[in-house]
Nucleic acid binder design. Structure first.
Length: 769
DNA sequence: CAGTGAGCGAGCTTCCGCTTGACTT
């Protein structure tokens, strides 16, 4: 008898489910999507929106395993994730099997479970359904739209701005956030304000009160805005106080604090960034290790549930185990009467999985620490603690606000707080971004109305309002998620796209836009605002939902998007560059009287003297790496036209000059070049240039291990060790061979066998891993 | 690998969202 074949997306999940299902079932993984649009023009028909799919190259081997197993199986259970993308994977698999004429009358069933527990899986297997074409069509619409946006906007950027750029439904709003934040910071005008604080003492305990009322008027942030006013107020207060304040009001309150929801991908990335300093991609890499399994004694076991999720839901079984654990470890009074329930906040959440939680809360971080790497321990620790805390009782906090009079009409206020019952706070406290709440509230002494307080002094402090903070990885992901832009599996990727396109740079863990990032954003905002709007994705999601519920037709949806979009693309494509992008004019060149402007050209930002319409051709010069289009001044721009500088000659009589080329600054000697790293081509001396040339000559001599007479074949020392080249093709040398004693025949043979060079993009860094 | 920048046309890239391993000059 054949078996029942079950398909899931992840191989780790396949292993787990295999255990639950027993010997009548064989579980295989699809490794994610199995087919995708052909990655070039023509993947989507612009009239019918018919889609041209092809197998994903690196998943072909898994697909053939599935096909092979299906031939022997009695029935197929499609258990891909219960969301739009998962439904599409199931559909693509049945399409592949149908094309091979394998389906015949074998039953194909779609099953779905949101948690990997014995009961959930049994339940799912016994309640199969058909693949939902409505859901599949919603996915196809999503896929086609993303393709059309990306593959129409990007080429427009190549033509109008610079080769190799990109735009998309997700990356472009993300870029916009970073650029607009920078513009806010640049437009920010700091404002001065003063605070006045009293240093108080009672029963030998010191505390601080803030001035909240002066001469009968409430004191607000900008009530006092200069030194003189502050000094006058202070002098008056000191006189009125005469060394003492008097308690006029004591207000006590109790505040509850709820634990944070269990982790989902975005909150995990944020907390790992805030608390552990991990980048989003590092967090995901480590989480993957924890998910796939670690040997903590008795074989490898998955320590956490799936890490790419947008659901805060916990399996019933898990909640039971966590509540037992809390009761045993912290006492019965630490669990709430009913389990804490959390609701997913995002609108476009698909909730295909559980929250990220330990697979068993009984694997306490400190008890398995020796089996984990440092990074694994740290990440597991916060996941474990956050999960446990999420099912504990609220914390209870006492707060007290004390008003103290200082003469008549003047009031200082002291705030204090104390934790009465820590509850969940004993285990885990969520971190905060850019906390400006300097209110590190402390305990106050016992105070009651009428008490006299010793006044030790009054302090004036000058402050300035601060501009909004630049985005961190954590705050960017948080913001993207709030707008429903991007998915758990792509947050880390969005960041690396922006960085590898050189739209933004990450410095001291903060994002700022580059010149090219600003130019691209400006172009998209001016000409395609609707499609880079923060709400574009959210509105699309609503329409996709309608398709998935069968209330709308996906082709109609596509047409309503494509008709206006394609018109707009065509219109803009016909406009000239300078109509689409405004150049920044710096002033007039004193020598020629021609205008000096700065703009983004094919190979980067350039300063230009004159315009293209002038009779005389304009002059060009590239910006230095640390200069920016936004800030460069006329004076700085004119200096750039000093290159190339003739420095003199080498001992052999070759002319030596300094300049900046495509690959950075260099000195030229005769027809050869040497890169310069620390020196500045505008100020480098002949003496220094000759030193660099000398070093370069030595380096060239060292590079060659062997060369052969009458052949172009050379054995060279490269970045990754010795290798053989014939000028166009390279071959690596196995460790067992000595590069200096290879014979020509051996080299030719190895070159023959070496894989042919793949067509690498010209000088571009690959975006894909 | 080293002097471009306009515009022409060759040949090149480019999207988002599912999943894990793979290999350079």
């Amino acid at each position: 008898m054949g078996k029942n074949l079950v398909i899931v997306e992840s191989p780790a999940k396949a292993r787990t489910i295999n255990k639950y299902l027993g010997k009548d079932f064989e579980v295989l993984a699809s490794y994610g999507h199995v087919r995708d649009l052909i990655p070039k023009d023509g993947a989507v028909d612009l009239d019918s929106f018919a889609m041209n799919y092809t197998l994903i190259e690196k998943n072909k081997k898994y697909v053939s395993e599935i096909v092979k197993a299906f031939k022997k199986a009695d029935a197929l259970y499609l258990a891909t994730d219960p969301d739009r993308e998962g439904e599409a994977i199931s559909w693509h698999l049945t399409e592949i099997l149908a094309e091979k004429k394998l389906l015949k009358d074998k039953p194909v069933k779609r099953v779905a479970f949101n948690e990997i527990t014995q009961s959930a899986i049994n339940e799912a297997i016994s309640n199969p359904r058909d693949v939902s074409m409505d859901l599949v069509n919603a996915q196809q619409a999503r896929r086609a739209l993303d393709y059309l946006v990306g593959f129409n906007l990007s080429p427009l950027l190549w033509k109008k701005i610079k080769y190799g750029l990109s735009a998309g439904r997700v990356q472009s709003p993300a870029l916009r956030m970073i650029v607009e934040r920078e513009l806010e910071i640049e437009a920010f005008k700091e404002e001065e304000y003063w605070t006045i604080e009293a240093d108080c003492e009672k029963s030998k305990q010191k505390f601080v009160g803030k001035l909240t009322q002066f001469s009968g008027k409430k004191i607000q942030q900008f009530s006092i805005t200069d030194d003189k006013h502050a000094t006058d107020v202070r002098t008056e207060l000191l006189q009125a106080a005469n060394g003492q304040l008097k308690v006029v009001k004591v207000e006590k309150k109790q505040r509850k604090r709820r634990p944070a929801a269990p982790f989902i991908t975005s909150t995990l990335q944020q907390e790992a960034s805030r608390k552990l300093g991990f980048s989003a991609s590092r967090t995901m890499r480590i989480a993957q290790q924890l998910y796939e399994g670690v040997d903590v004694g008795g074989g490898a076991v998955g320590l956490i549930t799936y890490m790419r999720t947008d659901s805060v839901h916990l399996a019933k079984e898990a909640i039971g185990e966590i509540r037992d654990f809390i009761q045993n470890r912290f006492g019965k009074d630490q669990i709430p009467g009913q389990p804490n329930v959390y609701k997913t906040k995002q609108k476009n959440a698909q909730e295909a999985h559980e929250a990220v939680r330990p697979t068993s809360v009984n694997r306490v971080p400190d008890e398995i620490r020796k089996s984990l790497t440092d990074d694994q321990y740290k990440l597991y620790n916060i996941i474990w603690k956050r999960t446990v805390a999420s099912q504990m009782v609220d914390a209870l906090i006492d707060t007290v606000a004390v008003d103290m009079s200082c003469g008549t009409g003047n009031v200082f206020r002291a705030n204090g707080s104390a934790i009465r019952k820590p509850g969940f706070m004993a285990v885990y406290l969520e971190g905060t971004d850019d906390s400006n709440n300097g209110g590190d509230e402390k305990m106050l002494p016992q105070l009651k109305e009428g008490d006299e307080i010793q006044l030790n002094g009054i302090r004036n402090e000058q402050h300035f309002t601060k501009p909004p903070a630049r985005f961190t990885e954590a705050s960017l992901i948080k913001t993207l998620e709030e707008f429903g832009i991007g998915r758990p599996s792509t947050y880390a990727q969005i960041i690396s796209t922006l960085v590898s396109r050189e739209y933004v740079i990450l410095e001291s863990k903060r994002f700022s836009p580059t010149d090219i990032g600003r130019v691209v954003h400006r172009f998209l905002k001016d000409h395609f605002e609707k499609y880079v709007d923060y709400d574009f994705t959210a509105e699309l999601e609503d329409e996709l939902d309608a398709v998935s519920r069968g209330e709308d037709d996906w082709v109609r949806l596509m047409r309503s998007f494509w008709t206006p979009f394609s018109t707009q693309v065509n219109e803009k494509a016909q406009m000239a560059k300078d109509e689409l992008i405004e150049n920044r004019v710096l002033g007039t060149d004193p020598k020629s009287g021609r205008p000096v402007s700065v703009r983004m050209a094919r190979y980067g930002a350039v300063v230009q003297i004159g315009t293209k319409d002038d009779e005389e051709k304009p002059l060009f010069a590239g910006l230095k790496p640390n200069q920016s289009m936004e800030t460069i001044s006329l004076e700085e721009a004119l200096i750039l036209f000093q290159l190339p500088r003739e420095l003199g000659e080498t001992a052999e009589g070759e002319p030596v000059s300094a300049n900046i080329g495509r690959f950075g600054p260099y000195v030229r000697y005769g027809s050869k070049f040497a890169s310069i790293k620390e020196d500045d081509p505008y100020s480098i001396t002949l003496e220094r240039a000759l030193e660099i040339i000398d070093e370069k000559r030595k380096e060239d001599a060292n590079k060659i291990i062997q060369q052969f007479d009458g052949s172009t074949v050379q054995v060279l020392n490269g970045r990754y060790g010795p290798y053989i080249t014939d000028g166009s093709k390279n071959a690596r040398i196995p460790k067992s061979m000595a590069p200096e004693s290879l014979r020509l025949e051996e080299c030719l043979e190895m070159l023959e066998k070496a894989p042919t060079k793949k067509g690498r993009g010209r000088g571009r860094k690959p975006t894909k891993k």
